[in-house]
Design a protein around this nucleic acid. Structure first.
Lengths: 342, 342
DNA sequence: TTGTACGCGTTATCAC
DNA sequence: GTGATAACGCGTACAA
């Protein structure tokens, strides 16, 4: 491999000059610069980033961990992350943690080994390795959280207003004349579940219907949605609307209803969450809450770069806009007036 | 940050010994080892991987490029890649190229800058940077291709038998009594399109029906599938079966049929390709070709490691098993006998 | 504007 | 079994 030394020799300048041509070209005379560049080209020189990193203590990499990269929600977020990182000159080290603590720790360790300049973790558990770093460096620690927000973590985060969104969904369901509504939650320990549940309950209370709000737990997957729906639909007094905390669970609910010959939206209304690509292609197209997935990803990168470049410290919480997308999976409930908004 | 030097000093040994405790503990006396380890623990020492890489010329990273990480097919492959890499002690640098030549080159350049030990590219275009490396190092170049296979590239690759799979699909459609079959292809320059088209045509020829085989082009996306289907379904003599070269296009086709009030599978049979997760949840569940996505990902990593560890050179082509998954989107065609396999 | 010289933190090769 | 010490390739303060 050709080094800066080879370039310098071939161009008849010192290593310093050759190096300068590549890092601060303006400091070097037009003519020498041209000569050096010509040699760089001819020899096919490429800077050894490892050596450069050792010198500068910057790697130009960030690690990003996700519970499941093949989940359509996360893969969109990751895409936003990759794009923003790439634009800023950073490379992305991808970690699929499968919600496994050990894997999470392993990726967090990369920070200690200086394999990356910062880390974005998508998930709600703060690895102890990161907690220690946070402890030591406080708000200047290059750690950012995405999608879920737990203020007590003390790290910056990008997310939507989950409670608000859930509340809107409930409001719209009540407006459509539904009274017996069921929730299909995510895992109980997820802040996502917590926030959305709070929002939904608040709406139910506002309408004096908290007593008729029921819930089943899932894990955001299609199968868990199907299972939960099967339970709910075989109740003595089944709900007329099911609000799932993920589109995948909503799709599972649709499948369960189909199997049970319950037609949607005539006999059962279904609402999802996220607005993944498939939401609009299932039958009936799914009413859901659109999360700006790519933007969430991009924003986490921005927050991290703010810390990395010393622009901004303190944990900042970025709330991005969501939007209720009305499609055809919601119909009028028993108390709906035909004139009500479809 | 604490360095090996600090550890050595605190433990009262030389840097060499301290370092040895971490890389070849068996060479160090029990007592000194324990002492050093205690200090490592107490000081919270973590090896600086950058310095280590500079010395060893190995980074422990591989770069993986995909056209679109949010595509359900690729995200599964990537998951397999991540898993296998992780197990082997490698980290994954993710590159989303969006089929953009410049981006592809940019990620390929990482090899020259020694940001990674090897590269896996999912896609069919060999970046010129890689071509140069291949030119120089021949079969020992740490470059592997996945999903698509073009022998002339001269790189190892993991994939299924695309032509064979397409042929099977056609055979099964003919057996079900279909004669007017339409293909929805991928981009014309893709080897995937080429191979599957060859397989489909071969089957048509075998049945003397090549004259009745028609085709439309798509780009593997849902929308392109819908567009293609709209064209096909408004033909004077529309096909009774549409074989799409991706599940997403098949889902688009299902949507087009629904809009046109053409019921599937009664009036139109649809077949997809890949068996992405959603394939079984759309209505009707999609008959498709299952690709072992995660295994393809894992295999590309194995192939790369073979090269990296000098176990195997020469371009090897790994053909993984696929399987035709029969679900409900295919029904009997005009020439089908009721007794035929459903 | 250019060159000299040092150090980044490891690992590996020698001696002892 | 342990210790000196020389690379690895680069960036940059400082001197010229």
């Amino acid at each position: 491999m050709t080094t800066i030394r080879d370039v310098a020799t071939a161009a008849g300048v010192s290593r310093a000059t050759a190096a300068r041509v590549l890092s601060s070209p303006e400091l070097v005379a037009e003519k020498t610069r041209a000569r050096v560049l010509e040699v760089v080209e001819r020899l096919g020189y490429s800077r050894n980033s490892v050596a450069a990193s050792l010198r500068t203590t910057r790697t130009g990499r960030i690690v990003v961990t996700v519970p499941d990269i093949s989940n359509p929600f996360f893969s969109r977020v990751i895409r936003g992350v990759e794009e923003a990182a790439q634009e800023a000159g950073y490379a992305v080290l991808l970690g699929d943690t499968r919600n496994d603590r050990d894997r999470e720790e392993q990726y967090a360790e990369m920070l200690n080994r200086r394999e990356a300049d910062g880390i974005i973790f998508l998930g709600h558990r703060l690895p102890t390795t990161l907690a220690r770093i946070l402890d030591r460096d406080g708000s200047r620690a290059p750690i950012v959280n995405g999608c879920e927000f737990t203020p007590s973590l003390g790290v910056s985060s990008a997310h939507i207003d989950n409670a608000g969104a859930a509340r809107e969904v409930m409001e719209s369901l009540y407006t459509m004349g539904h009274r017996d509504i069921a929730l299909v939650l995510g895992p109980p320990d997820s802040p996502l579940t917590r926030d959305r549940l709070i929002g939904a309950q608040r709406a139910a209370e506002d309408h004096g219907l908290i007593g008729r709000l029921i819930a089943e737990s899932g894990d955001f997957s299609v199968e868990s949605g199907r299972r939960a729906a099967n339970v709910l639909l075989s109740l003595d007094r089944p709900p007329t609307a099911i609000f799932c905390f993920s589109d995948e669970m909503a799709i599972g609910t649709l499948a369960a209803a189909r199997s049970a010959q319950i037609s949607c939206p005539e006999a059962l209304s279904v609402v999802g969450f996220d607005d993944i690509q498939m939401a609009r292609y299932v039958d009936p197209p799914l009413t859901t809450v659109r999360q700006p997935m790519a933007d969430i990803g991009r924003k986490t990168v921005e927050l991290l770069l703010d810390i990395l470049h010393g622009r901004q410290a303190g944990p900042v919480s970025a709330t991005l806009p969501h939007r209720l997308i009305i499609r055809q999976s919601v119909g009028l409930g028993p108390f709906g007036r035909p004139g009500a908004p479809a």
